[in-house]
Write a protein that binds this DNA or RNA. Structure first.
Length: 235
DNA sequence: GCGACAG
DNA sequence: ATCTTGTCGC
């Protein structure tokens, strides 16, 4: 059986290592100051899906150039599924495949947007934080629905937002990325502040519900015709 | 005890 | 997440 008790404990311990402020580092120089004076050159999106009745876990990472948001590279990794889906323990199921895809990458993204929660998690250790910590890369959690926390209704206008609260602690921002679409749940993954997280997601929007990095990772993974065509056109 | 519950 | 066509609404 699965020792869920131990996995939850592991989350609590690893969550202490998550860095919640901007801590971008260039390939050469030292750490870059807080806030957003730093501009990433490469932003990636990561998404995980399942095949063969859930027995195979497939991760896709798409690397885009910023600010052009053009696709520069993508890698897909397939591994045997290691764990069933258990709410709150999603990262243990998904991060092995993410690491495999990560290691295939030739480019080194400055920032990765992960499909799922960051610290907007019961133990503050969602898949975006887990992956960011283990790959030691700045990450942002961009989820399509809520895992925990509460928030007031978000306004209908694009750009409207509400804080995602867990008791007295703000764990994320619920942000309307597109009209008549459910809002996005944005949270700190690792080494990116909440303000910066929302900022970079905004900078990566191109009229769809999802920011381009995540949208591309999603499209590549699901093998949809439009993405295949545009992919071959550019790569 | 009864719901809620990322992907 | 995944199985899947048409269809309702803006």
């Amino acid at each position: 059986m699965i020792d869920t008790k131990a996995l939850r404990q592991e989350q609590i311990e690893k969550a202490r290592q998550v860095i919640r402020h901007d801590s971008f580092v260039t390939t050469s120089t030292s750490a870059i100051p807080a806030s957003t004076p730093f501009t990433p050159e490469l932003i990636a999106g990561a998404d995980v899906g399942f095949e063969k009745n859930g027995t195979v876990t497939r991760a896709a990472i798409a690397v885009l150039h910023y600010p052009s948001l053009e696709l520069l590279e993508y890698q897909v990794a397939r591994i045997d599924t290691v764990l069933p889906y258990i709410p709150g323990l999603l990262s243990f199921r998904e991060y092995p495949a993410l690491m495999a895809a990560w290691q295939k990458l030739n480019l080194r993204p400055d920032l990765v947007m992960v499909d799922g929660q960051g610290i907007a998690h019961p133990r503050r250790f969602g898949v975006a934080s887990h992956f960011g910590l283990l790959a030691d890369i700045p990450t942002i959690g961009v989820a399509k629905s809520r895992l925990c926390g509460e928030h007031p209704p978000v306004g209908d206008a694009v750009g409207s937002y509400q804080p995602l609260m867990d008791h007295a602690e703000q764990i994320g921002v619920v942000w309307r990325s597109k009209k008549r679409c459910n809002p996005l749940y944005i949270s700190i993954g690792h080494k990116v502040s909440l303000d910066s997280s929302v900022f970079w997601v905004e900078q990566c929007m191109k009229g769809y519900r999802l920011p381009e990095p995540t949208r591309w990772a999603d499209g590549i993974a699901s093998n949809r015709p439009f993405f295949r065509q545009t992919m071959q056109k550019n790569l």
